[in-house]
Design a protein around this nucleic acid. Structure first.
Lengths: 216, 216
DNA sequence: ACCTGAACACCGTTCAAGT
DNA sequence: ACCTGAACACCGTTCAAGT
């Protein structure tokens, strides 16, 4: 059994069931070995998790832009960064816990700086572009979580209803009244109920911001 | 010993040293009681954490706007939301883990909807305002983490240097070369080195966005 | 160099028993 | 109604011992 094998099994456990599911004994059982053999290879549980985090950092360091113009390359960086973040929620949380968020973003930030400069931006203007892209990516991923992962979405009626009744949260399921009496703003309700495609929304705002910042 | 007393002690532990520091035995010792007594009051550890999360949700439900015009009231909501999020990183993470981020934001969202309507906004326009504010708050808090909590900030030279050398991360401390040969964009370096006052930056962008969305 | 089993300290939790 | 102590199953980790 190699260190590599251990890391792979551990990564799978974390990815599929979260870091809490990764116990040394379970891992050993899964690998068909004695618990203590793992210790010889990776030190201890904390070091094992650190290694997984390190791996994640390296994957983010491997993000490269595609496209020919600086504009498309910047957008591609944003898009890839977002996708990679979304693909590893547990590991990203672990990076965050260890105070390494900064290191996680560093390579993409460098790439963004490079592209901003290639586009002729300098100084505060270039910095603004870098910040804006990071901001949009992070915000997008998080707002998506706020909107709720598919199905546990906020009931739109609850939102507008609450507003009308002055902030009291309706705990019951939507009553007929709420719907009927709710000649509240239906368009608003619908608009808040779905971010119909967060990906589309993201693309849209990134492109807008980049175009804007590059064309002054 | 009351349930309230237990919750207070537990909340303090979590706030100061994170959820991992909250063990039933430690808590019992701190309260000068038998471990099992705690179980009588709160059920088990998971239920205890749930109660802390519930408390956090209620605190966020108590957020109310201040100010006379819709614009100042919306800005005040954004400001308060941001402050409350920043004050409880561990608890917010726990809310997040439990998939309750949505519920956490609901009351503020309702308040925002109310103010947007008071300002005369309807439909998609009102929704855009609500989304924008949530987005700015969340993005601000997160980008702040990315910039690094005081002192573990990204070395600006590393960023621009990396960009120049094509993405290779300089692991050494800043060498004289890096600084001297670095006729790279000094203004950019400085701009990226500090978000001199994330609070100011936040205020600025929130006000800009709100003003913009309210004045069409 | 690599693996094992026994042992230790620490968990969360249950339960019968006390008052 | 509230608290206790003993006990159980599960942790991470160390260490002496094996090959």
């Amino acid at each position: 059994m190699s260190r590599e094998e251990i890391l792979r099994a551990a990564a799978r456990l974390v990815r599929e069931r979260g870091p809490r599911a990764l116990t040394m004994r379970r891992l050993a059982e899964e690998l068909g070995t004695a618990v203590t053999a793992i210790y010889w290879h990776v030190g201890n549980r904390e070091a094992l998790l650190d290694a997984l985090v390190e791996r994640t950092l390296q994957e983010f360091a491997a993000i490269h832009p595609t496209g020919r113009t600086p504009r498309t390359r910047i957008v591609s960086l944003a898009r890839t960064l977002r996708a990679e973040l979304r693909a590893r929620p547990h590991l990203i949380a672990m990076v965050h816990e260890r105070g390494l968020t900064e290191r996680l973003f560093l390579p993409v930030r460098q790439a963004l700086v490079k592209e901003a400069q290639a586009a002729g931006l300098r100084g505060a203007r270039a910095a603004a572009l870098v910040r804006a892209v990071e901001f949009l990516v992070v915000g997008s991923v998080l707002v998506e979580k706020v909107s709720g992962p598919e199905g546990e979405r906020m009931a739109a009626d609850t939102v507008t209803d609450g507003a009308k009744t002055g902030g009291a949260v309706a705990r019951d399921a939507v009553t007929p009244d709420a719907v009927v009496a709710g000649e509240g703003d239906r368009a608003l309700e619908r608009a808040l109920a779905r971010p119909p495609d967060p990906g589309r929304l993201f693309e849209l705002s990134v492109r807008a911001v980049v175009r804007d910042l590059l064309s002054r």
